[in-house]
């Protein structure tokens, strides 16, 4: 089975207070930010690695190709994914400020056409733009089905068909789909028994992990030798003109940090109505 996993580097969400807006409010400045793999993409990578390995024997039985659309520095994020077990990487170079979900989806579609994977697994959104549309637009461009918010994935025919459970606000939806298909995952995909691929023993349980597996020193050293291909948007024939533009950025108002205790629910409701004016 061959899986394409789009990944993106994002400003470290744990250091969100370092995010600054340029003086004219037209863009978010990236200076001084620390970068890490988009957490949703970490989950997607974990799902893809589980689908393409024998978890008990710790051996690879398929191929995971990472693709990142972004600045050259994103190579560090791709290398991290390779160190966790993916086989190859592709970087499509682009300036973050020139990219929107449509451009990214077009670039991913172009790479997918070249790679012909059985499956694309990706995060449902990135924590910077939070648009939550790239996966769906990508599926549309490829003419493939899209299954959003997957929490369980089962396949037993090397990825030709999938039984998927979707994590929805109203409950769990079970679907069966024939590949190739685009799947976006929810955090429940990290459950110890969320992925069954017909190779890893059915009773095998992965360790509980907040963000999926870590790259070991051995993995980091092996990743140095794994190939990362460099592509350009024009080389892929992608129309790089963004269609969604941001008018203005502003930081949320600073919190006062003050806590007021109230004696009763009535008093709380009254204050929310008259002082906070949120009711």
């Amino acid at each position: 089975m061959k899986i394409l996993v789009p990944i993106k580097r994002v400003a470290d969400p744990d250091n969100a207070n370092k995010v600054k807006v340029s003086a004219d409010g037209t863009q978010v400045t990236t200076e001084g930010l620390e970068w890490k793999m988009n957490p949703f993409d970490e989950w997607a990578l974990e799902a893809a690695l589980r689908l393409t390995e024998d978890g008990a024997a710790k051996s690879r039985v398929g191929e995971v190709v990472l693709v990142s659309v972004g600045p050259k520095e994103a190579v560090a994020t791709v290398r991290e994914g390779l160190a966790k077990g993916a086989e190859r990487g592709v970087i499509v170079e682009g300036n973050d400020n020139d990219l929107d979900s449509n451009v990214i989806a077009a670039a991913l579609a172009a790479v997918a056409k070249k790679e012909s994977p059985d499956l694309i697994v990706m995060g449902k959104q990135t924590v910077d733009g939070d648009s939550n549309v790239a996966g769906t637009v990508l599926a549309d461009k490829l003419g493939w089905p899209i299954i959003n918010y997957a929490m369980r994935i089962e396949t037993s025919d090397d990825g030709k068909t999938f039984a998927i459970k979707r994590d929805l606000d109203v409950g769990v939806a079970s679907v069966k789909v024939t590949g190739p298909v685009v799947i976006t995952v929810s955090d429940s995909i990290l459950h110890p028994e969320s992925v069954k691929n017909g190779v890893t023993p059915a009773d095998f349980k992965y360790p509980e992990a907040e963000g999926g597996r870590y790259a070991s020193l051995k993995g980091i050293m092996q990743a140095k030798k794994k190939p990362i291909a460099e592509q350009t948007l024009s080389g892929l024939g992608v129309d790089a003109k963004r269609t969604v533009t941001y008018k203005k950025f502003e930081l949320p108002p600073a919190r006062s940090g003050q806590t007021t205790f109230v004696e009763s629910v009535e008093e709380l409701v009254e204050k929310l109505r008259t002082e906070a004016k949120v009711l």
Binding site: A76, R79, E80, A209, Y214, A215, S216, I220
Partner: peptide, 22 residues
Amino acid sequence: NEETRLFRDQFRQWVERDLLPL
């Protein structure tokens, strides 16, 4: 270098995600 940064970040993540909650 890139490998040292990645190794460091993995260590920090492991400590923050697994060890501190434990």
